[in-house]
Computed example of a mutant assay.
Amino acid sequence: MPAAEEIDGDVYVSPVYLAGSTYTGDPALRPLLDAGFTIVHDDVANAYLSSPDQKVQVGWLPEGEDDCLWRITGHGRPFTPPRWLATFDHYTPVEVVAAFTTALAEDQAHDSSGSVHGGLGGTKADPFLALMEAGWRVNHGPYVSSSHPPDRHALVSYSHGRMNHFDEINDQRSRWTISGGASGYSSEWLGTFTTHTPTHLITATMNRLADTTPVARYKEHLPERNRSASHITPVKPPAPSPLDIQRTAAARSRSTVARPVLPAPTLVYRTTTAPSVSAPMRHR
Rank of each mutant, 00 (worst) to 15 (best):
I72W: 07
N139M: 05
A105G: 08
T80V: 08
P234C: 02
A249D: 11
Y143N: 15
L129R: 14
H41Y: 07
M1H: 04
E220N: 14
A134K: 08
P275E: 11
P15C: 13
S174L: 06
A204D: 03
G74F: 00
G74T: 00
S21A: 10
D111Q: 13
S179F: 02
V13G: 11
S112D: 01
N139L: 12
G184S: 08
A250S: 14
E63R: 11
T199D: 03
G59F: 01
H90G: 07
N226A: 04
L243E: 14
D43E: 05
L120V: 15
P78T: 06
L61N: 05
T80H: 12
G122S: 06
A229P: 06
R254N: 09
R282H: 09
T22S: 15
G118C: 07
G191S: 05
P275F: 05
S179I: 00
D89P: 03
T271V: 15
H165A: 15
S159N: 13
Q108N: 13
R77H: 04
H41Q: 12
T38F: 07
P150S: 07
N139P: 03
N226S: 13
M281S: 14
T101A: 04
G20W: 03
T256I: 07
N226D: 14
G181C: 11
G122H: 07
G36D: 14
D26A: 12
P52E: 01
R71E: 15
D244P: 03
D53Y: 00
P265T: 10
